[in-house]
Simulated scan of single mutants.
Amino acid sequence: MFSVRLAYIFCYNLFQFCGHTWLLTNTVVRFLTFGQDALADTFHSVAFVMSLCQLLSVLELFHIADGIEKARLLPRLIQVLEKNLLLLMLILVDKVQSKPVVCVQLFFWNMLDLLRYPYEVMRVMDALSAPMVWARYTLWIPIYALSVLTEGFTICHAAHFIEQEASSLGNTTASAPIRRPIILAVSLSLLASGASLTVWLSLKERRHQLERWAKKMKRK
């Protein structure tokens, strides 16, 4: 039966799937074609589409709150904030954009979304399969952990460049040597806390979804 709500969520997830497919393909093809030379401007080449996809991901919080998408709100909130804040940092601290870790970070981000959005598209169509459910709730967790690790390295690089820029502008003070460690400690602590909570909730969700799928298969 046709539903405007289902049509909307289908189109949203399909758009995100196409966007992240393009992003991953562009990143991989550029690296295979140009090698390490591609690292210098890979972020610049995908920044607009990545920013658009991540900005639209804020809508997912409303999807969950409204009941259009069945998912936990807290871990999705952490993920949306995490990605958007990191992306904003990359845009503002342009010297970090050419670092290899940024390309790895983008790769993991797109892999995560290419596990989730096709799953949501097929869920709306009621055409899920056991391998897709398993991949969505099992592979997603280690890839997310790796993405958080790359985000930590990116934050470290950004803090280094911010400190360098402050020094070059003559903004050094007696507390400058401890400024960077404090910023890093706060940023990395927040990142680690949010990631740990997300992984814990994801493990609970994985157990629930796999048990639910097993029961569904038995009924058939």
Rank of each mutant, 00 (worst) to 15 (best):
T172F: 11
A185W: 07
H63Y: 04
A166N: 11
S98Q: 08
S187E: 10
F31N: 02
Y8G: 15
A127P: 01
R30A: 11
L86E: 03
D37E: 12
A47P: 12
H20Q: 01
T198W: 06
L87V: 10
T198V: 10
S3P: 03
M122Q: 10
M132W: 01
F62Y: 08
Y8D: 15
F10Y: 15
T173S: 15
L85N: 02
N110R: 06
D66E: 10
Y144M: 11
M122I: 04
L56E: 13
E120Q: 15
T172S: 14
G19Q: 02
W140T: 09
L61S: 07
K83W: 08
E69W: 00
A7I: 02
L188P: 03
I183L: 13
H208Y: 10
G170E: 06
I183A: 09
A176E: 14
K216R: 12
I162Q: 00
A214P: 00
V93A: 10
V28D: 10
M111D: 07
D126R: 04
L86F: 01
A176T: 09
A159F: 15
I162F: 01
K95T: 08
R123A: 08
V29I: 05
S98L: 03
V28A: 09
S98E: 04
V102P: 04
Q79C: 12
W109Y: 10
R180C: 10
W22N: 07
Q209A: 04
S147D: 06
S45I: 05
A71P: 05
L52A: 13
N110Y: 07
P75L: 11
P75E: 13
L128R: 05
T33Q: 14
M111I: 12
S147Y: 04
F153T: 05
A145T: 04
L23Q: 04
L197K: 12
I182E: 10
V102S: 05
P100A: 14
M217R: 05
A65C: 13
L169R: 08
H20N: 08
R180M: 12
L114G: 06
H63T: 07
T198D: 10
L14Y: 09
Q54R: 15
M132N: 00
V4Q: 11
P131C: 05
T42R: 07
L203I: 09
I162M: 08
I143R: 00
Y8A: 15
A159K: 08
S45Q: 12
A135Y: 06
V101T: 14
I78C: 08
L23R: 05
L14T: 05
D66T: 00
R30S: 11
G152S: 02
I91C: 09
S51H: 13
F17S: 04
K99P: 01
A7T: 07
T25G: 01
S45G: 06
P118L: 01
K83A: 14
H44C: 09
L184G: 02
F62C: 09
S189A: 12
L92C: 09
V28S: 08
G170M: 05
P100T: 14
I91Q: 15
L114T: 11
L81C: 14
W134T: 14
